[in-house]
Design a protein around this nucleic acid. Structure first.
Lengths: 150, 150
DNA sequence: CAGCCAATGTTGGCCCGACCAACGTAACAC
DNA sequence: GTGTTACGTTGGTCGGGCCAACATTGGCTG
C-alpha cells in the first residue's frame, strides 16, 4: 500500500502523519527562506511586526508564539541587517520598542513571495477545496490546543 | 478572529499551520512516550521492527525514514534495555540483523496504548469524519513529497 | 512611601528530530 | 582483481522549541 513500505502502524497514526508532513513543509520553507538568507524566526518576527506595528519584544513573543529568549537573538539578527530597529521605550525603561524599517518591509514582501511559491509546492497534490479543508482542520486543532489560556 | 492575536499572515499560511500543529502533536506524543522513558525514534524503530520482522539497520532506516546514523544510536538505546537484539548476519558480514525481543514487543504494545490516548487528545476537537479527512489529506501530501524516488 | 510582586530583556543552557560527511569493512559486478 | 556499491559507525551541524536564572524596572498595596 505504501510505496516506501512505511509500517501501517506509523502511516495511520495522525501524529506521525502530521510531524512527517511538517518536516517536509519545513524543508521546503527553509529552502525558500534560505534563498534570502532568512530562517523561520526571521520571517515570523517580521510578519508579526508588520501586522502589529512597533512593539516590545515581549509583545512580539506573545503574538508570534516565539519564546522571549529566542526573540532576542532574532531581533539581533534582523537588527544587524537593518531590517528592524531597537529603541528603548522612554515610557518604560524595561522595554525596547522594535520598529520594522523600510528595508525590513521590502525584505518581508520578498520573503512572502518566495513563501507563496513554497506553499504551492507543498500543496501541489491538493485541489483548492482540499487545501481549504486542510487549513480549516489544522486551525481547529491549533486553536483548540492553544486556547487553554486559564 | 484569533484569540491569541496571531498575525493573519501567519495563521493563514498552510506551512505554518502544519508546523505549529505538528509542534503541539510532538509535545503531546513526547509526553506520552516519556511516561515510558521512550522517544519518537524508539517507538518508530520498534514499530517498524514488529512490522517487518528481523531486519538490517539499513532496512530499518529505509522503512522507518530515520537516517542510518540515527538508527545506530536508537538501536544502542533499545539494546541497552533489552528491547532489541543486535546480531551479525552470518550471510553478510557487513550487516547486523536486529531482532525485537519479547520484552520489546511488550513495551511496544504499552507504547501503542499511550500513543492511542495521545491521538485522542490531539484530535479531540474533530469528529470521526474530520479525522479521517485530515488523515487522507496528510497522506496525500506525504506520498506526493516522498515519492520522487528517482 | 516602603515593600513586595510582576514584567522585561538577556544569557546560557537543553532536547529532539533531521540531516550530512567521512571512514573502514565487506560484498558484488565485471 | 579491480572498482563500485552497500553497511555500520563516528562525529558532527542546524532549526525550532523550551526553561531557569538574573538584574532592572514598574506597579500595586499595605
Amino acid at each position: 500500500m505504501q510505496p516506501t513500505g512505511v509500517p501501517s502502524q506509523l502511516s495511520t497514526t495522525p501524529s506521525w502523519l502530521l510531524t512527517q508532513t511538517a518536516a517536509h513543509a519545513s524543508r521546503i520553507v527553509s529552502t525558500a527562506l534560505g534563498t534570502r538568507h532568512a530562517r523561520g524566526y526571521h520571517y515570523r518576527v517580521l510578519a508579526t511586526l508588520a501586522d502589529t506595528g512597533p512593539a516590545s519584544q515581549a509583545d512580539l513573543s506573545r503574538h508570534s508564539g516565539i519564546d522571549r529568549s529566542d526573540i532576542v537573538a532574532t531581533i539581533n539578527d534582523l537588527g544587524d541587517r537593518d531590517l528592524v530597529q531597537r529603541q528603548p521605550d522612554p515610557a518604560d525603561r524595561r522595554r525596547n520598542i522594535i520598529h520594522i524599517t523600510p528595508a525590513g518591509r521590502r525584505e518581508l514582501t520578498h520573503l512572502q513571495h518566495t513563501l507563496d511559491a513554497a506553499q504551492e509546492t507543498l500543496l501541489a497534490p491538493l485541489d483548492p477545496t482540499e487545501r481549504h479543508e486542510l487549513v480549516r482542520l489544522l486551525r481547529r486543532l491549533l486553536t483548540h490546543h492553544q486556547e487553554p489560556r486559564d
